[in-house]
Nucleic acid binder design. Structure first.
Lengths: 194, 194
DNA sequence: CTCCTTATAGTCGGATCCGGCTATTAGGAA
DNA sequence: TTCCTAATAGCCGGATCCGACTATAAGGAG
């Protein structure tokens, strides 16, 4: 499995939108935000323009027309190439099929949970649990307002379901460990806070 | 919450190890690998040396001695400063307390799961489930061989427990959606595979 | 003794990422 | 009318990241 030419998933979002119709980068960004896909993709205007250039270099997309409206900056509208259309599917397929290691910040911190001492750790975990619970509630509400109301097909928000599921698992673990610390079933090795 | 001066979590690993004793970068990397912390931190020699330099710039660590052994490359041994020692704890505390958005590749792919079509999606999810199940088994075995055998205190491998919990949740979701697709309860909107 | 692989220790250049900046127009507040 | 903010559209320089590479030594196979 050689390394992908393009690995930034923002490129995936671009390809996905251009599937629907040609757009210019700024439009892509605002459409993604409108559909609240900005919680699945890190949308940064700098990265976006770099990503678009990379996609052009690899001929997955191509400029379709460039126009200007009054004295606004020039806009370049891009469209998918056939190559882009097929690579899009191949890429998604691969991303789904084979899990790749990622390194979330939380796991790094948990690796050194010991450094906080039992009380400090339990306290910090409790605070995290609170934040997570709130985000989960917000996510649920957002789902109810769109899919629940029949505004959007469930498939189009399926990643939100996944995100909620993942957060719930994290919440459960966080609370579980907090409880174990408080109950004394997860003990600190003697001789150090490390 | 202003942005951290140093955000790469590899720096956290460095600080954590220097807590125990002074080391040179290469030694840090091999110690981390030995303790299989390389599944919690992305250890790349290039990044490691950059990270160490950044830590020195911020005076969280400092060179303690530099020596050479025969005609091997020179080694610089680093140690924690008082600042580093205290920032270490503050940083962990913050990372635990407040969840930050991250953008795993899987969530990006799931956002466009539709593009695979029902059969393609179910098939890809099934394959992922297989990989996940295997990794979970391996992780469990590794835990049993260390913590289970009393070789290492549970607290020192607690992040492995978290990782397994997260994978299990992902596995459950993956299988659940695969089943829903096969059972027809998650349907594809008519008029497109997007 | 020679060859090959692995361990030791780190450097370097290019790719990527990202926050902050510019410039213009539209819309409303005062 | 003038001022201020938000939206439109994108550019750029610096920070970061990372893979590929160098060079030496030690250990074993044949």
């Amino acid at each position: 499995m050689a390394k992908r030419k393009i690995s930034n998933t923002l490129a995936l979002a671009v390809l996905g939108l251009l599937q629907e119709r040609d757009m210019h980068p700024y439009e892509i960004a605002s459409t993604l935000r409108e559909r609240s896909k900005d919680s699945s993709f890190k949308i940064n205007s700098g990265s976006l323009y770099d990503t678009v250039e990379a996609l052009v270099r690899h001929e997955w997309i191509e400029p379709v027309e460039t126009m200007r409206d009054g004295r606004r900056p020039e806009r370049t509208v891009y469209g998918l190439t056939d190559l882009g259309r097929s690579e899009f599917v191949v890429w998604i397929d691969e991303l789904i099929r084979v899990p790749v290691a990622e390194y979330p910040k939380f796991i790094a911190a948990v690796s050194y949970l010991g450094a906080l001492g039992p009380e400090g750790a339990a306290d910090a975990l409790a605070e995290r649990a609170g934040h997570l619970a709130q985000r989960i509630a917000e996510g649920r509400a957002a789902l109810a307002a769109t899919v629940g109301a029949g505004q959007v097909p469930r498939l189009f928000m399926i990643e939100v379901e996944y995100g909620l599921h993942a957060w719930e698992a994290e919440l459960a673990w966080t609370q579980g460990i907090r409880d174990e610390i408080r109950a004394g079933s997860l003990t600190w090795p003697t001789g150090g806070t490390t």
